[in-house]
C-alpha cells in the first residue's frame, strides 16, 4: 500500500493517504482497459490470421485429392520450393520498394519542408498545400494507377515529349516497364512519406535554426546538422510507411508492368487465387513478412532515432 501510494503520488503525500492512492491505482488500470478494443481487434484480425498463415505454409497436398485440397502437415520443403522458384521476384520487390522509397523521400522531403517551414505562419497556405498532398486519397487507388497507365502510354504526351528531347529512343516506351512500376509505387505512397516528415518539421523550433546560423553554420550546414537530424523521426516513419506496403504491393506491377516486372505480391496473389497453391502462397507471405521485419529493425537501429522518438 505504502509503495503504491508513493509511486502514485510521489513522496509528498506520504503513506498516510490511502484513498487517493487507491484512486490512482484504479486510474492506472483503467488506462490499460483502453487497450482492450484494440487488442481484441488485433487478436482477431492479425494474430489468428498469422497463426493460420504459418500453419498453412506447412500444409501438404491430400494424397490423391483434387487441386486445392491440403491437409495439416509439417512440410517445410514448401519454403525451399517457393524460395528457389520465386527469389528473383522477392528481390525485385525489395529493389522496387527501395527505389520508390528513395524517390518518395527526394520528392516528399522538400515538399514537406516548404509546407512546414517556408509556409510557417500562413495557416491558410499550409492547409491548402496539405489538402493537395492528401487529395489523391479522395479517389480510388486502382483508378489513380490506371490514370498513370494512360499518362505513360505510348501515345501519351509524356512519351512524345521524352522522345522529342531524346531522353527516350524513338521506339522507347514507358508503360509496361520497371520504371513505370516504380513511378506508380512512388506516386501512390508519396503522402505516407510526406505527412510524417511534415509533422516532424512542423514541430521544429525555428529558433534552433537561428541558433545554427548564430553559431557560424551557413544555411546548408544548418540544414544538415540541425534540421535534418531533428526531422529524422518523420523520415523514419515515412520510409517505413512507404517501404513496407510498397514491398508487398502488386497493383502497380499488374497495371503498369509486364511479365518481367513481377513483384512478390503478384506471385502470392496468383499462387493463391489462380493455382490454389495455398501452402506456397503462405510460405512466400511468411518469408516476405520476416524479411521486412529484419530489414526494418536493422534500419531503425541504424538510424539511431530512438532518443528522438
Amino acid at each position: 500500500m505504502t509503495i503504491v501510494s508513493a509511486i502514485g503520488h510521489g513522496p509528498g503525500n506520504g503513506p498516510a493517504s490511502p484513498p487517493p492512492a487507491a484512486q490512482g491505482r484504479r486510474g492506472r488500470s483503467g488506462a490499460y482497459l483502453l487497450l482492450l478494443p484494440g487488442m481484441a481487434y488485433l487478436t482477431l484480425f492479425f494474430v489468428f490470421p498469422v497463426v493460420a498463415l504459418l500453419l498453412t505454409s506447412l500444409y501438404a497436398p491430400v494424397p490423391g485429392g483434387d487441386i486445392g485440397q491440403y491437409q495439416p502437415a509439417f512440410e517445410w520443403r514448401n519454403y525451399v520450393v517457393a524460395l528457389s522458384s520465386y527469389w528473383p521476384q522477392m528481390l525485385r520487390s525489395f529493389l522496387y520498394a527501395l527505389t520508390a522509397t528513395v524517390a518518395a523521400f527526394l520528392i516528399g522531403y522538400p515538399m514537406a519542408y516548404v509546407i512546414a517551414v517556408r509556409a510557417r505562419g500562413r495557416p491558410f497556405l499550409q492547409g491548402m498545400l496539405l489538402v493537395l498532398v492528401i487529395a489523391p486519397f479522395f479517389t480510388s487507388f486502382i483508378l489513380r494507377t490506371i490514370a498513370w497507365k494512360q499518362i505513360l502510354a505510348d501515345e501519351s504526351f509524356v512519351v512524345a515529349a521524352l522522345r522529342a528531347v531524346q531522353l527516350l529512343p524513338p521506339d522507347g516506351r514507358l508503360t509496361a516497364t520497371g520504371f513505370a512500376v516504380v513511378c506508380g509505387l512512388t506516386y501512390n505512397f508519396l503522402p505516407f512519406m510526406t505527412l510524417p516528415i511534415y509533422a516532424s518539421l512542423e514541430r521544429l523550433d525555428p529558433r534552433l535554426v537561428e541558433a545554427g546560423g548564430d553559431l557560424y553554420a551557413g544555411a546548408p550546414t544548418t540544414f544538415l546538422r540541425v534540421t535534418l537530424p531533428l526531422s529524422m523521426p518523420g523520415v523514419v516513419s515515412g520510409t517505413l510507411l512507404t517501404f513496407i506496403p510498397a514491398s508487398g504491393d502488386y497493383v502497380n506491377s499488374v497495371l503498369l508492368g509486364n511479365n518481367t516486372t513481377t513483384m512478390i505480391g503478384q506471385v502470392i496473389d496468383s499462387r493463391f487465387f489462380k493455382v490454389a497453391d495455398y501452402p506456397s502462397a503462405a510460405a512466400l507471405s511468411v518469408v516476405l513478412m520476416a524479411a521486412i521485419l529484419l530489414l526494418v529493425s536493422a534500419y531503425v537501429r541504424r538510424s539511431g532515432t530512438e532518443e528522438l522518438l
Binding site: E210, A211, D214, V226, P229, L230, L308
Partner: peptide
C-alpha cells in the same frame, strides 16, 4: 557574434 537565446535554443539531438 554569438547569442544566448531567451529560450536557450539548445540542440536537443
Amino acid at each position: 557574434v554569438n547569442t544566448v537565446f531567451q529560450s536557450y535554443a539548445l540542440f536537443p539531438h
